[in-house]
């Protein structure tokens, strides 16, 4: 048994605001193993995004420990251990799609030939061949988000942190991208941490579902999915799928206090 890719122990994060302290994360302990597809689901304010940001060293925890590849989040970030996909595609409007994917490669000092090869390869991976010279505004929202995934895949990070990447897209586009993401995951063998508030999306994609609840943000249930790794959209009508979805819903309900 190898060391988990992400290991959190009693992780807490409290923001000091003018209205008093906000407990974004409270005593979160969690392992993410290599090759896992872990979804974080819960209502707004449950700390799922905060957890991802702590792993990415974009926030500092106020209590507990977390390691990424056995290192501190900061060391992992400096080692370029992960690619981060934000909710908004966030492509630079003055760069073409190819130019946007080239951005991390330029910053990390890849050679020109290497950059070109990687741009071509990642564009193929997200099915955007032929769009290299287009500007972001010439692409649909779903295509822009795919380009931003390509940007996170362009360098050799083993971990992909995705913060509600499909949250702003319509359901048809989202289904399509979910399928593509699964095949991409199968092809690349990356470890993926995925934040969402859609139950079907979480169940369909994940090998492990982390259900969280707000005030304070904590983990209420961790479900290891029995679904096979190789799945298609039809799996959503099977009893196994509906069972897990039911358990997620129960977890969400249990964690949610209607006060």
């Amino acid at each position: 048994m190898s060391v988990p890719v992400v290991q959190a122990q009693g992780l807490s994060l409290t923001f000091q605001t003018n209205d008093g302290p906000v407990h974004a994360l409270s005593d979160v302990s969690l392992d993410i193993n290599k090759g896992d597809f872990v979804s974080f689901i819960g209502p707004s304010g449950c700390g799922k995004t905060t957890f991802l940001r702590v792993v990415a060293d974009l926030e500092a925890p106020t209590g507990g420990t977390v390691t990424v590849n056995g290192l501190s989040p900061q060391e992992a970030r400096l080692n370029r251990a992960y690619g981060y996909v934000f909710q908004a595609a966030g492509l630079y409007p003055w760069r073409t799609i190819g130019g946007n994917i080239r951005l991390p490669l330029e910053i990390m000092g890849y050679s020109k030939a290497e950059r070109e090869a990687r741009v071509t390869r990642t564009l193929e991976l997200v099915d955007l061949q032929g769009f290299e010279k287009k500007f972001p505004w010439q692409l649909s929202g779903g295509m822009q988000q795919r380009a931003s995934i390509a940007r996170a895949l362009a360098f050799d990070a083993d971990i992909l942190l995705m913060d509600e990447p499909f949250g702003a897209l319509d359901e048809i586009v989202r289904d399509h991208l979910n399928e593509q993401l699964l095949s991409l995951w199968a092809k690349t063998g990356k470890t993926i941490a995925f934040v969402t508030h859609s139950i079907p999306e979480a169940v369909f994609l994940s090998t492990k579902i982390v259900v969280m609840s707000p005030r304070p943000g904590r983990v209420t249930d961790v479900i290891d999915s029995p679904l096979p790794a190789d799945r298609s959209l039809e799996i959503r009508d099977t009893p196994e799928f509906l069972d897990i979805a039911h358990r997620v819903r129960e977890g969400l309900r249990a964690g949610h206090s209607y006060d």
Binding site: D57, R77, G83, Y84, G90, Y92, P104, I107
Partner: peptide, 22 residues
Amino acid sequence: AASELDLLKTYSAGGLQSFFKL
């Protein structure tokens, strides 16, 4: 936006890089 600066931070980009590239 903050997320655009965060993105560069995830690349561990330096100050000069974030100035000239963003």
